[in-house]
Design a protein around this nucleic acid. Structure first.
Length: 310
DNA sequence: AAGAGGGGCAACCGCTCTCAC
DNA sequence: AGTGAGAGCGGTTGCCCCTCT
């Protein structure tokens, strides 16, 4: 939390300097809670005034949502909640409010803090690599088939874990996340320009908090003739946390490390008309290069993605 | 015992979105 | 269509407290 605004900068100039900041006292909590229970939610700035609080509405809202709401579940996260967070985050990214919507009684702030402080570290600590299994392979014919519009990446559980539900839960359709470099690398493509060479690359294991893990990356290609856009999807829990930890999100300098590090990336990439874009869907003909600036030299020649012949 | 360091987490910041006018 | 206020969201900060040395 912060100090009760010592410097105040611009805000000293306006009326906000009369407002309290910092930690909430038990009395303030009591006032807000009583008011909310009596009157219900409304305009937060009015609530702040009417409840007799020297706080801005925003602060009241935050305090209510994150701490005072009666339906909040306090205490440590259960194993199930933890697994769910890991899973949802792999699908949704840092959409904490959306993740929180799947965990009754938990707030986005709580989940965000939990992720940043606990899960991220745990996943990083358990990051390992394994080899692609030749049995879980794809062939270059499939990959170069122009009718192939989407690529799904599945992680297979090993024999000791519950296969179907877990695999189902990990399968992501035409959605958000991919690290093209990891995928390219896993598909045997040297993104620095070498010809594709399949089946001799590493793939990251997905290690869950309970010790279950997926391995033997199973990449398959599925036709999707109706779509114009082509999305690549994957998930790799700890890979993403690793890259964020080591390089920070959206860091262009990841390129040089691709071939010897287990990377994944939060975002998406799409191929259209021989252009490669990240992070955003195209709307109509407008190419939106999202978080990665392609012309910065990251991928100057998309032919390195030769297996993506859309 | 005491100081340092790090983790956890409550709260703030700044931005975007939505909606009423 | 433009604008302003309120709400919501993700990222960040910094204090408290625990552990380690």
């Amino acid at each position: 939390m912060r100090k009760p605004d010592p410097v105040s900068k611009d805000k000293a100039k306006n009326n906000n300097d009369k407002l309290r900041r910092g930690l909430w006292s038990p009395e303030e909590d009591e006032k807000l809670k009583n008011y909310m229970l009596r009157n219900g939610q409304g305009c937060w700035s009015d609530i702040a005034k009417n409840a007799g609080l020297q706080r801005c509405g925003k602060s009241c809202r935050l305090r209510w949502i994150n701490y005072l709401r009666p339906d909040l579940k306090r205490g440590a996260f259960s194993l199930q909640e933890e697994q769910l967070i890991v899973h949802l985050r792999s699908i949704l990214g840092n959409k904490w409010s959306q993740i929180a919507a799947h965990l009754p009684g938990r707030t986005d702030n709580e989940i965000k803090n939990f992720w940043n402080s606990t899960i991220k570290k745990r996943l990083r600590a358990t990051t390992t690599t394994s080899q692609f299994s030749p049995n879980n392979s794809y062939n270059s014919t499939e990959l170069s088939n122009p009718t192939m519009r989407s690529v799904h990446v599945k992680m297979c559980m090993d024999s000791s874990s519950s296969p179907s539900s877990f695999m189902d839960s990990l399968s992501i359709n035409s959605s958000q996340f991919i690290n093209p470099f990891l995928l390219a690398n896993n598909m045997g493509c040297d993104i620095n320009g070498d010809q594709p060479q399949f089946f001799n690359t590493s793939f990251s294991q997905s290690v869950l908090s309970n010790g279950a893990y997926g391995k033997n990356g199973d990449v398959f290609v599925e036709g999707n003739e109706g779509g114009f856009e082509s999305d690549l999807c994957s998930n790799s829990f700890e890979g993403r946390s690793c890259i964020e930890e080591e390089y920070g999100s959206n860091n262009m300098d990841k390129k040089d490390n691709v071939n010897n590090k287990d990377l994944n990336y939060v975002g998406s990439f799409q191929v259209k008309d021989n252009l490669l874009g990240f992070g955003n869907h195209w709307q109509g003909e407008n190419l939106k290069v999202g978080e990665w600036e392609l012309e910065a030299g990251l991928i100057e020649d998309v032919s390195v993605f030769a297996f993506l012949d859309f």
